[in-house]
Amino acid sequence: MQILDANTQQNVSTASTLQIPRMLPLKQVMHYTALSSTTIYEMINEKSDRYDPTFPVQVKLSRGRVAWVESEVADWIKGKISARVH
């Protein structure tokens, strides 16, 4: 059993309140949006006819790895749902 002192308890409570954004790899963005990778990259390319300035831009995590912020993707999807014509 671990014994917690005041410092440990403070660190635990601080860590539990920290909100770290969740990052989504391309495959999950494709799954959630029902878009292909080609369409996604065209939507973030300002030179493309399919450019959509409202679509979230990826975050470069390392030399060969990018991801999207989950909350931004979710907000974009919610916006599309709200904008539909009934």
Rank of each mutant, 00 (worst) to 15 (best):
A6C: 09
S37C: 07
D5L: 11
Y51C: 05
K27D: 05
D52A: 04
T33E: 01
R65M: 11
N7D: 09
Q19C: 10
R50T: 02
Y32A: 02
A67K: 05
Q10G: 13
V85E: 13
R22G: 08
A83T: 05
I81A: 08
A74L: 11
S16W: 12
K27T: 06
P53Y: 07
L4K: 15
M43Y: 01
E70W: 07
K27M: 07
R63H: 14
K47T: 09
H31L: 11
S13W: 10
K78P: 03
S71T: 08
S16L: 15
T39R: 06
P21M: 01
I77H: 03
I81M: 08
T14V: 15
R84C: 08
A74Y: 06
S36P: 04
I77T: 02
S13M: 13
A74N: 06
R84F: 12
R65L: 11
S37P: 02
L35A: 02
Q28G: 02
S71A: 10
Q28K: 14
T14I: 14
G64Q: 11
H31S: 08
S71E: 12
T17E: 15
V85T: 09
R63I: 02
V57G: 08
M23T: 04
N7K: 13
T39L: 11
G64N: 14
V12C: 14
G79F: 08
Q2Y: 07
S71C: 04
D49Y: 07
H86I: 07
W76Q: 03
T54C: 12
K60T: 06
T17H: 14
V66T: 04
K27I: 07
D75T: 03
V29P: 00
M1R: 09
